[in-house]
Structures are given as structure tokens and as C-alpha cells.
Simulated assay, not measured.
Amino acid sequence: MTTILVTGGTGTLGSLVAERLRADGHEVRVLSRHARPYAVDLREGGPGLDRAVAGVDAIVHCASTPRGGDEKAAGQLIEAARRAGGPHLLYISIVGVDRVPLGYYRAKLAVERLIEGSGLGWTVLRTTQFHDLVFQGLQALAKLPVMLLPAGVADQPVEVAEVAGRLAELATGEPAGRVADMGGPAVRTAPDLARAYLRASGRRRRLLEVRLAGKAYKGMRDGGHLTPGQAVGQGTFEEFLARRFPAG
């Protein structure tokens, strides 16, 4: 049995990683701002972070926010890991962080580089967007009578439970550096995903594709956030929707 710390362990992904590791017989510590006994704000660090990291064999770093602070949080975590003797540090990132110039993607890439240069044994897994995030985006767009979709953009959503399983597997292995990307089972156009959402939710909306400006939009139109050669996920968006709309 190994002892593994999961940062962001109460979130969508982190909670599933913790659940999977416990099911496999490992001792799991969950770190988040409100999860006792390891209630820690990673951006602040401090004695609570040192207690959380002390004696662990591996850290699965899932904590992240588009609101900023990821680099500072990663820096605090790396320093605590060094003080604790250097456990295996595993980080979940996003496919395309080096190709799509979004602010959040730049922050994720910066964290990758901090981890690579940390002197710790490390592993980085990049995945495509989770079904949950695509669902939330479509749900927001469907509030209007016309769903405005980015023209020429596709996505490759992946099942979050499958990503959790892969992270649990990697966490109990040796540091592997940058491992193969993990993508959902198929690349889907925005209208295709929108129609699947509308069918499942029982809504009717007109779809209108809109061309946008900017380098980030171009990066996504060029497929920088996709990994069709690594379509290893099994769960489809329709299966995800069936769980969200069981009466459908």
C-alpha cells in the first residue's frame, strides 16, 4: 500500500481519483481549501501543506482554476515536495496548452515547465476536455433562442472517470515524464455536439455558427486542442448525456 496525496481532491476529477485509489487499497490524503484534516490554500502554502505532503509516495496534482494562481500554487507544492524528500509528482494538463494561446492554457503550460524543472520525479498527462465542461458550455449557450457556435471548431470530449482511472494507474507507477495524450473516442463538430445535447434535453434551438477573431480561436479551428491519434477514451458524449437526462 502506498500513501498518495490528491490536490483538488474534492473536485470533479480529484474526487474520482481519490475514490479509485482507495478502492485499489491505497491510503489517500485529500487536499483542498476546505477538506480537513488537509484544508490548505495551495497558493499560500505553509505548515498545513508540509503536513499534507510529509511521508507520501506520490502527489496527484489536480487542483487548478481559470481564475489564476496555478503557477504560484504549483511552486508552493514543489517546494513542499522537495522538503518532504521528493515524492513522485503527477500533473493533469490539457491537450493543446502549447498550441492554443488561451490565458488558462498558458498557465497550465507554465506549470508543466515548473514541474519538469523541479528536480522531482514527475509525470504529466494531457487530456482533451471532459464531457462535463462541454455540457456546461452547451447548457449556457442553449439559454438563448439561437445557439451561437464557433464556426469550424470541433471537440473531442473524454469521460472524466476514465481520466481518473488513468491517473490512478500512473500515480502508482514510476515517474514517466510526459506520457501519451488521452483523448475522447471521437472528434465531434460543435453543431454535432449541440444537436446531441438538444436531443437529450428535449429542447429545440436554432444553431448558428459564427466566425470569431483572435489567435486562440484560430488555434482551436486548426485543431490544436485535439488528439485524434490518441482517441483512447471509450465513453461517448451520448452516454454522458443519458446519465444527465435519464428520463430522456
Score class of each variant (00 low, 15 high):
I4M: 11
I4S: 05
L5S: 02
G11Q: 05
A18S: 14
A23Y: 07
A23N: 03
E27T: 15
E27Q: 15
V30C: 09
S32D: 02
S32V: 01
R33C: 08
R36H: 12
Y38Q: 09
V40Y: 04
L42A: 14
R43A: 15
G48P: 01
L49P: 08
L49E: 03
D50H: 13
R51S: 12
V53T: 11
D57N: 10
A58V: 07
V60A: 09
A63V: 02
S64N: 12
P66R: 08
P66M: 06
K72E: 15
L77P: 04
I78W: 05
A80Q: 02
R82D: 00
R82I: 00
R83L: 02
G86R: 07
G86Q: 13
L90D: 10
Y91F: 14
I94Q: 11
V95F: 01
R99I: 06
R99T: 11
V100K: 03
L102A: 03
G103P: 02
G103L: 06
Y104D: 10
Y105Q: 02
R106K: 14
V111W: 00
V111D: 00
I115S: 04
I115A: 09
G117F: 00
L120I: 03
W122S: 01
T123S: 08
V124M: 04
R126F: 06
T127C: 13
Q129V: 10
F130D: 08
A140Y: 06
A142I: 06
K143G: 08
V146Q: 11
V146D: 10
L148K: 03
L149C: 07
P150E: 09
A151C: 01
G152I: 02
V153T: 14
V153K: 15
V153G: 15
D155Q: 05
E159K: 04
E159D: 01
V160C: 04
E162T: 03
V163P: 05
R166V: 13
E169G: 06
E169S: 14
L170F: 02
G173P: 01
P175G: 10
R178D: 07
A180K: 09
D181K: 08
G183L: 01
P185H: 08
V187E: 01
R188V: 14
T189V: 09
P191G: 10
Y197T: 00
L198G: 11
R199I: 05
R199H: 14
G202I: 02
R204A: 12
R205C: 08
R205E: 13
L207D: 13
R211T: 14
L212I: 10
L212G: 01
G219T: 11
G219P: 07
D222V: 11
D222S: 14
G224N: 05
H225N: 14
H225P: 04
P228Y: 09
G235I: 08
T236D: 04
T236C: 07
F237Y: 15
F240W: 04
L241Y: 13
R244K: 15
A247K: 15
